[in-house]
Amino acid sequence: MAKRVGINLDVLHSRAQIAMLTGVARGDSVHELIDAVAPHHVPGRFAPDVALLELAAAALDLACPPGAEPLEYEGLREGYLPEVTFRGRVEHRNSQYALYAAACMRGGLQPDLLSDAGWWQTPLWQYAVYAVVIYSRAAAERLGLTSQDIAQRIAARRHLQLRAAD
């Protein structure tokens, strides 16, 4: 019987974050970001949902520092992610959940991701990619910075070293 190779979950966690932020810094499309994160999803062993939601929470924190005007949920997806069309109630609800989960994490509440989203057909981490993009774009707009600047600031907060531009 073949011995199962160990998977370091912390390494997958940080690599998923680095892949995501490197793509955001480069200005990659949402589909390219999903493709960049996908190799870090190991079915049955590791999903990068928490790793990505942590990035979304950090981006939201940049967009809405204490005392700042809060973001309005209405129109958030359409305004900051116009290239993605959510079809049907399920996709709308799943994308809403990712945005809300990141906001919960930012506020200190850890959502029950496995119970809430573990059964979804499309994994939560893909919707978390959308949340990172939305909150990063909101932060860039509010702070008058580029996506690259926002990605670098989030990386610094998470103690991550982004890959050099290709």
Rank of each mutant, 00 (worst) to 15 (best):
D28L: 08
D28Q: 12
S29W: 04
S29F: 01
S29A: 04
V30D: 03
V30H: 04
V30R: 04
V30E: 02
H31T: 00
H31N: 01
E32F: 05
E32L: 03
L33V: 03
L33I: 02
L33H: 06
L33K: 01
I34W: 00
I34F: 00
A36N: 06
A36Q: 07
V37Y: 00
V37S: 00
V37A: 00
A38N: 01
P39M: 04
H40T: 11
H40R: 06
H40Y: 03
H41V: 08
H41N: 01
V42I: 11
V42E: 11
P43G: 09
P43S: 07
G44Y: 03
G44N: 04
R45V: 15
R45P: 08
F46C: 03
F46N: 03
A47I: 07
P48E: 09
P48N: 11
P48I: 07
P48S: 10
D49G: 13
V50M: 14
V50L: 15
A51D: 10
A51S: 12
A51P: 12
L52E: 04
L52N: 05
L52R: 06
L55W: 05
A56Y: 09
A56L: 10
A57H: 09
A57N: 12
A58L: 10
A58D: 15
A58R: 13
A58K: 09
A59P: 05
L60W: 11
L60Q: 08
L60V: 08
L60K: 10
D61E: 10
L62E: 07
L62A: 07
L62I: 06
A63T: 09
A63Y: 14
A63S: 10
C64V: 14
C64A: 15
C64I: 14
C64W: 14
C64P: 13
C64Q: 15
